[in-house]
Amino acid sequence: MKVLKVTPAELDAMMQQWSKAHRVYAPALVKQPAASPNCAPGWRRVDGSGALTLSTGPTPASVKTFFFPQPETLLTYTLENNHPDKGLMREPEKSKEMQVVVGVRPCDARSVLLNNLPYQEDPFFQANRRRTALVGFTCDQSLSTCFCTQMGGSPLGSEGLDLAFSRTQDGFIVEVGSAKGEALVTGLDLAPADESEITALAARRQKEVKASSTELDTLKGRELGKLYDAPLWQPLGESCINCGACTFICPTCYCFDIQDEVVRGQGRRIRYWDSCMFPLYSLHTSGHNPRGQKVQRTRNRFLHKLKYFPDRFGPFSCVGCGRCVQDCPVNIDIREVMNDLLAVE
């Protein structure tokens, strides 16, 4: 793997370089002005001028919006009688322009790899993955709500990042993680990183690995029925208001629904975010709803992340970014849920 050395000034130059050829996005730390209505909430399109500022901890919005656009058009069609396309469903022409997302945190980068497991054969997700490069910054500081180390991640991790920046004394060392990352640095005159800095980073990583807890992994071997019937769900479901805030800000919630929209004769079939917190999510055509009660829906979200998903794919479907912990209107804390689950006899 190639490891380079970059000064802050060189980073600015790189951003400028990229924005000439690609669409470059960075976290929007303040509320987005109306001038850029076409960018997903929490992100802003950058033109390379001005320095990149990042907040401690995860970015305000997760990167999933680049892989699961809200909405994604699957097909377009027309209902106009005299239209030559009448009766045809067309796959929309999608931009193949590379998008570079700068400022990604290791937790979010990992979320893309986790989402990739169920979406391995999804053409839309894969197309978005092919055209999206993630330029990440490892975390020097964590928030009190961060728990990536519990979920198998690391604040210094470079997993899933095409370029991973880690701070050093006078700038960054940059690990090139993929061909896409390679393409982003070709043509730039960058020096290789010092051996001492690479070993220093490796040592810091080693320390993180030692500090990380693996207690949670015992959940994977537990009997589902006992976790399902545990008494912890009742009070949790009672407090939960069943909004979709946690699922929509979560980087690893990937459920969707499909719908046709027709406006003045022009139609499109869209895929948009859905949430297991909504009654409509599990409502059958018959009118029966297998998860008709609040508590059932709340339980489903946590058991999916901590039991169903690992049973099927291996890792937990949570990266420990802590966004839901911060933003849940009723302070439902997944860390507490995990501890309660571990305590289930």
Binding site: R23, Y25, N38, C39, A40, W43, R45, T65, F66, P69, P71, E72, T73, T76, P92, K94, S95, E97, Q99, E261, V263, Q266, G267, R268
Partner: peptide, 12 residues
Amino acid sequence: KIDALETELQVA
């Protein structure tokens, strides 16, 4: 307007 949506919202 759904035609206008196609272009940029798709991207981000």
